[in-house]
C-alpha cells in the first residue's frame, strides 16, 4: 500500500506545477460547455436541460472562484469543505436531470 502512494507522489508534484494552467483551461472549457448547455435549454425549454445548464453554470462559477483563489489566497478563500458543498449541488442537479422524464 505504501508503495502505491510512493508511486503517486511524483504525479502530485507534477499536478502542483501545472495547477494554474489546468485551472484556467478547465474554466475556459466550462464556459464553452455552459454556453452550449444554455443554448440547448433555450432551444428545447425542457426541465432536464435546465438542470444540466444549472449544473454547468455552478461548475463554471466554482472554477472561476478557484481561478481567483489561485491569485488571492490559495486554498484559504475557497476551502475544500466549501468545494465539497458546491460539488454536492452539481451532482444533485445532474442526478435530477438523469431522473427527470
Amino acid at each position: 500500500m505504501e508503495n502505491f502512494w510512493d508511486f503517486l507522489r511524483p504525479l502530485t508534484g507534477i499536478a502542483e506545477v501545472l495547477s494554474l494552467p489546468v485551472v484556467l483551461l478547465v474554466f475556459i472549457i466550462s464556459i464553452i460547455i455552459f454556453a452550449i448547455a444554455l443554448a440547448a435549454y433555450m432551444r428545447k425549454k425542457s426541465a432536464r436541460l435546465l438542470f444540466v445548464a444549472a449544473a454547468f453554470f455552478i461548475f463554471m462559477a466554482k472554477w472561476l472562484l478557484q481561478l481567483i483563489d489561485q491569485f488571492i489566497s490559495p486554498g484559504l478563500f475557497f476551502s475544500i469543505p466549501a468545494q465539497g458543498i458546491v460539488e454536492l449541488i452539481i451532482m444533485v442537479l445532474l442526478l435530477l436531470a438523469i431522473l427527470k422524464k
Binding site: A37, L49, A97, I98
Partner: peptide, 9 residues
C-alpha cells in the same frame, strides 16, 4: 448536446 441528454435515462 441535446441528443446526449435526451438519450440519458
Amino acid at each position: 448536446f441535446v441528443d446526449v441528454w435526451d438519450n440519458v435515462g
